[in-house]
Each structure stands twice: as structure tokens, then as C-alpha cells.
Simulated scan of single mutants.
Amino acid sequence: MFARFSFLVVLLPLQIGLAKNNYDIVIRSLECKIIAWKYVNEVDCQLLRKRTPVISARFSLNQTLDHFDIYAVFDLLKKDNTRMNIADIKMDGCKYLGAMYQNNIIGKLFKRLKSVSNLPSNCPVPKGKLYEIRNYTFNSDEFPPGAPQAKWQMRLKLLKRSELVADISFEGSVVYNT
């Protein structure tokens, strides 16, 4: 009887999402580059804290964007500094802005992103307005349990048609609390 009770006490929190992850997300660097200044008037990205990272960003457009694409690449970095590609994703940026509330891991992350920003919910994205992400905190409990301890890099490319407008890169790691 005690064994069954112990089993439920340990597994029930995992099943209903009460268990907290035993790792931290660490971001070592954040870099935002504007490639096509004809679309962007101003940009600023800051990594405010590395462990339990906090980032802020702001940008303003020179032209109203009726459509844009997002190309995301996620790589794990091996000990010999070679890359192992985990994901290459190309998305319609306008559809993505409108689908931030999907009930999946990315949807959960961007639902909170929307709560700390004034990003639009759809296209067109008007010119002249200052868009900001204020103090977005990466919370490891929003990520899957059992993520491997690893160094990683994520690169986001924002495209207008096939023209590269902005290049954003994050480099970080998953560090277990032992």
C-alpha cells in the first residue's frame, strides 16, 4: 500500500504539470543585426541577465510590412564546436503573429512574449510605431522536462519576400542544478 502511495506522490505532479524542471536556461549572447535598413528605422536588443535570462528589444519600421517570413535554425553545439542541426523552420510571419496563442510549447512561450510586448497580432505591421519587448524572462518550466544538458544556438532570419531584413542570434545552454 505504501509503495502505491509513494508512486502516486512522485508521478502525479509530473502528469499534471506541477513538477519544476531541475535546469536553468542560460543565454550567453544575443545579437541583432539589421541587414536591410530600408525597412527598419531603429533596432536595439539587450541581454539584461544571462542566468534565468531576461531580454529586451525595440524596433521601428520605415515601411509598413504587409507580409514577412521567419526562418529559424536551431543547432546543438558539440564539444568539438561542430554543429548538430535540430530544426530548420520557415514560417509565414503574419500567420505566426496571429497564432501566438496555440496550445503548444512555442505557443506558451510566445503567449507570455505577447504579454510583455506591444507586438501586433497580425499584418500589416505599420511603419513609424515603436515596438518593444520589455524584460522577457526565459522560464525553464515552460520547456520540456528532461532537456539534455547542452550548448545551443538559435538563429532567426526575418525576410521580406526573399530579401534578408534582420538576423537575430541567441547562444546559450541548458545547465542542470546539481
Rank of each mutant, 00 (worst) to 15 (best):
L109K: 05
L109N: 00
F110W: 07
F110T: 13
K111V: 01
K111R: 15
K111S: 15
K111E: 12
R112C: 10
R112A: 12
R112I: 07
R112W: 05
R112E: 04
L113A: 11
K114P: 01
S115N: 02
S115R: 07
V116N: 04
S117T: 08
S117M: 00
S117Y: 01
S117C: 09
N118T: 00
L119E: 03
L119D: 02
P120M: 03
P120F: 13
N122A: 15
N122H: 14
N122Y: 11
N122D: 15
N122G: 15
C123S: 08
C123L: 05
C123F: 11
P124N: 04
P124M: 00
P124Q: 04
V125T: 05
V125H: 05
V125E: 10
K127Q: 07
K127W: 04
K127A: 13
K127Y: 01
K127T: 05
G128H: 01
G128L: 04
K129G: 05
K129F: 14
K129R: 14
L130P: 03
L130F: 02
L130T: 13
Y131K: 06
Y131E: 04
Y131H: 02
E132C: 12
E132D: 03
E132H: 10
I133R: 09
I133K: 00
R134V: 06
R134E: 11
N135T: 10
N135M: 01
N135H: 10
Y136K: 06
Y136S: 11
Y136P: 14
Y136G: 10
Y136V: 10
T137I: 02
T137H: 09
F138I: 10
F138H: 09
F138W: 14
F138L: 09
N139K: 13
N139Q: 06
S140N: 13
S140V: 05
D141I: 02
D141A: 08
D141V: 07
E142W: 14
E142P: 05
E142C: 10
E142F: 14
F143S: 08
F143P: 07
F143N: 08
F143T: 06
F143E: 04
P144Q: 12
P144F: 06
P144H: 06
P144L: 09
P145L: 13
P145H: 02
P145I: 15
G146I: 02
G146M: 08
G146T: 04
